[in-house]
Amino acid sequence: MKLLCFAHRNEAKTFFERLKLSPLDASLKLFKSDNAFVLITGEGIQNTTESLSITLSRFNQINEILNYGVSASLNDTVQKNIIFSIRCAYQYFDDFSFKSFTSNDQQATTDLVSVHKRIYSPEDKMNLSIYANLLDMEAWAIGSVAKRFKKPWYCYKLISDSLHEYTQCEKIKGESESYSQRFWNHFENIVGHHEESLEVTNLISRDPDFHFTFSQLHLLDKYLQALNNRQAGFTQEFMSSKHFLAIKNQEIIKKEKTKKLLDLLYEKYDPITSREISRTKNAFNSLKALNLNFDHSEFIEKDLVKFKGQFQNNGEIQAIINSLSAIDLESIKDKIRDV
């Protein structure tokens, strides 16, 4: 569900009329309709941080945050009375904060600085305009809290006036109702684009002939994502392949089928490494008779072999030394890597 954030109630006036909102928490100024929450954050970074944090921690059904508000322009060439989608929000409080937050609108190209207090001096304006063309008092806080809660966020700012006029708060307040109508029109236009994309159906994991543990599901997802990226429609094609069907129809328990299936997918995912892993296994299997418990998991990347053994007397030590001396590691490497 969407959460719409406004600094001032007047900016949200049309939303109150259209969405049939009812209050959820008067102290928070949080309201809810059937399909959206509306939060009046109050002005400023601290107010916004506090109210948004409390809201997100209480209502985990919120999956997306949209901020609407008025912004001043730091650059006279920026067009007024247009709603800009914000790309990146910076923060200025006597100096710039290193952290900035990038919204989830990948098409946005306008940046903004959130300030803690109203800006009056031309020097400040000059300094801020190096980083962004717009100025507000909330967007950075929205980005910051959204990131903390891992929620996508979008920010839309209407340029009321240039910085000089921005300081004339009363004028802005007087016009906020008409801004609200503009925000509503914008919201209605974009709402379709923000609908959650359907989760890519993982057809294989739903096949009742297999049983995936959590970590196996993670592997399956990793392999399929890469293979579908390499070749569109891979999953569907793979599921009708004879290799897949052969595993699916084997008379073995689901757990074993799943393991075989993942091995097969890994071969497709990384054929060259898969071949070398298989050769390495074979090479070290042939050393089983030495009764040393070899761990060759780091052999492929680092040429490193670990082993575990035990001894109780000199004779057993000598036996281990003899066993190890009999291994010709260089020839094993050559065999494994003979392309």
């Binding site: 994502q225 890469a226 293979l227 990226n229 390499r230 995912y269 990384d270 060259i272 490494t273 071949r275 070398e276 492929i300 990347e301 680092k302 890597r337």
Partner: peptide, 20 residues
């Protein structure tokens, strides 16, 4: 770029596996 598997390699960089 993400179609082929990477691993964390000997120097902690993300690379293709050594055989690759």
């Amino acid at each position: 770029l993400h179609s082929h598997p990477y691993i964390k390699s000997f120097d902690n960089k993300i690379r293709y596996s050594k055989p690759m």
